[in-house]
Design a protein around this nucleic acid. Structure first.
Lengths: 343, 343
DNA sequence: ATCTATAATGCACACGTGTGCATAGGAGAA
DNA sequence: TTCTCCTATGCACACGTGTGCATTATAGAT
């Protein structure tokens, strides 16, 4: 049984109220007593019960984090950023994976509400509206990261995917490509729409056509799925000479599939990824991609969350805050001028 | 302010004790009343306060998980397994990353003790002894996963790295290799020792020598570090024809570095990884590796933990339980007969 | 009809912490 | 010395839930 402030009180021959105040550094208690109590607490190895404190103060010193998959390297890096900031500020993290499963979403929300988390950071790209609405009803601050429906929330942080996609597409156009295709992930909602929008926007600016069958969406972004998806483009009578992929995971699968079919990257076709996950630098050829500041995004999300939960008592909290972060183009070896230019 | 059992009591015109009992399904309360109360609770959207319950019952329905890095794909998969089982059993997860930093370890333990977690799963390969001892003193069940000092704990789950390394090495020997080297990660303690031991054991069985400079250890397992490490072996007067890497991450770096230096894999040198992380299948050539059942390990760890925390009241808990899981060899394209055999 | 046994419910306290209020002790002023 | 005021501490209750015990209501036995 862990020791309590009452144990300290007995040992230090004071009342438990005095102990409580002394440990919180109240000015009501004399310096001498405070010091004595702190030493006693240290000696006994006291650690306060979060449950009791939470019960009394309505603050759990914990925030919930919801991701779709823990093992998606993109989210992993964001998590790392969140964890870093949370830990530095003595906040604990409840972590849960939704797997895009409705029942799990319900269970996660229940669990987090039960634990009375001070706030929730949703990193799941497609957390269902219904669930999030339930959450807002519960009056808990929510920060969403790269969510499909960023506008539905008051606090949101996301990467400027339109800008990124524009830069990537422009890069390909500048290399001389005219037939560029886009491979999307229909599961990721807004994210893929933004990236597609950037792609379209830049193509239009350059006066380049985007045939319908040059835009292909698949439900997921596992490398395995990228492998199959590439067949769609290869089957077209008029091949694209460059392919912008929704993210690196897909691009990595695309790369493998192309190579196993004897198609040479970048000589025969250029491939671009998105996100700059660690492994995008270790494919052969290394992937041209758009470097999204994932860890930084996580940090910003956590900082925003902390400002929300702290300010409930102190300073005023902004009514709404939407932060858009920018990344930068990373040209590696999977993109090159189109083969037709060699003629 | 969330509603409490008192609110339900008022609404249902009973005492809060009756509500408490009814919601827990006590046989003391009549079927009719129970049903009525459950309906009222549902109607009001009641969710119990974990804090209050925890305070009263000394069970937090939460377990802590400590990893070194969240963004290590190997641990990510284990986490996924843990999360899956925990969620299915209505346990929440406190997650924290130690970053192999002593101060953080201390902070994490404090935080988890404060929250009175029912148990802790340590996935950090090198969680310091001092810290873990502190934990045991706190009388919380600890399950370690692939820990460097598995024997120091009563409950441990780990993969049979010796066996895996043996199989990998034997595979290389059977291909005809005689000059095989090992690249380790000195940070990972026991894990690298086991893998080295398996390597040595199999080499000895085959009567093959292992020169001192054929075993090289570096402090870490980022691909980046693998890139540098390979120079050590290339600088040797008598090159190895095959290299067993501590894990896939290192192997992936090694692969890239070799290729950028014009060394052909597997024609000039065979490379083997370990763990079978997702991306090991997407390098070029895809990596021969040892498939460790990562998700399964996570599940087993979580199940063991749950059996420990549940059995405190019910059945007897085993004094000690060490579970060793086996993986299987995965031959892909990064290993082939040595060049000398071609003659 | 009276007594007894059982079922169903309420009362009151506990868990560990925080806090408003009352109180004791001491210092300073008259 | 006596009164006043401030400082330092203790008392008691509260947070939401669970549970031993007392209490009431009901049914069955005599």
């Amino acid at each position: 049984m862990p020791i309590t402030i009452k144990d300290i009180a007995k040992e230090a021959a004071v009342s438990h109220s005095t102990v409580s105040r002394a440990l919180r550094g109240s000015s009501l208690i004399s310096e001498k007593t405070t010091k004595h109590i702190q030493e006693t607490a240290m000696k006994l190895g006291y650690l306060p019960s979060a449950a009791a404190r939470s019960l009394k103060t309505n603050r759990s010193q914990a925030v919930g984090v919801i991701v779709s998959n823990i093992d998606d390297p993109y989210f992993s890096e964001i998590l790392q950023g969140i964890e870093e900031v949370a830990q530095r500020n003595n906040y604990s993290l409840f972590m849960a994976a939704s797997q895009r499963d409705h029942e799990r979403e319900v269970a996660i929300i229940q669990s987090m509400r039960q634990h009375r988390v001070d706030g929730v950071i949703i990193c799941s790209t497609a957390f269902s509206d219904e669930q999030s609405r339930r959450f807002s009803k519960y009056e808990v601050p929510i920060v969403v990261v790269n969510n499909q429906a960023a506008e539905d929330y008051r606090y949101s942080i996301y990467h400027d995917d339109v800008d990124g996609s524009c830069q990537l597409t422009r890069h390909l156009i500048e290399l001389g490509h005219r037939k560029i295709a886009y491979l999307g992930n229909s599961n990721s909602g807004r994210t893929t729409l933004d990236r597609l929008a950037g792609f379209r926007q830049e193509m239009q600016s350059a006066g380049l056509p985007v045939p319908d069958n040059y835009v292909h969406e698949i439900p997921g972004s596992e490398p395995e799925q990228g492998m199959h998806a590439v067949d769609h483009f290869l089957a077209l009578p008029d091949h694209p000479t460059a392919l912008v992929c929704f993210n690196d995971m897909l691009a990595i699968g695309v790369l493998k599939s192309l190579q196993s079919q004897g198609v040479c990257v970048p000589d025969d076709i250029s491939i671009a990824g998105f996100d700059n996950i660690v492994f995008s630098n270790y494919t052969n050829p290394p992937l041209t991609t758009f470097d999204q500041p994932k860890r930084f995004i996580g940090q910003k999300a956590a900082e925003l969350m902390l400002s929300l939960v702290d300010s409930t008592s102190k300073t005023s909290v902004p009514e709404q805050k939407i932060q858009v972060l920018k990344g930068k183009l990373l040209v590696r070896k999977s993109t090159a001028p189109p083969p037709s230019n060699i003629l």
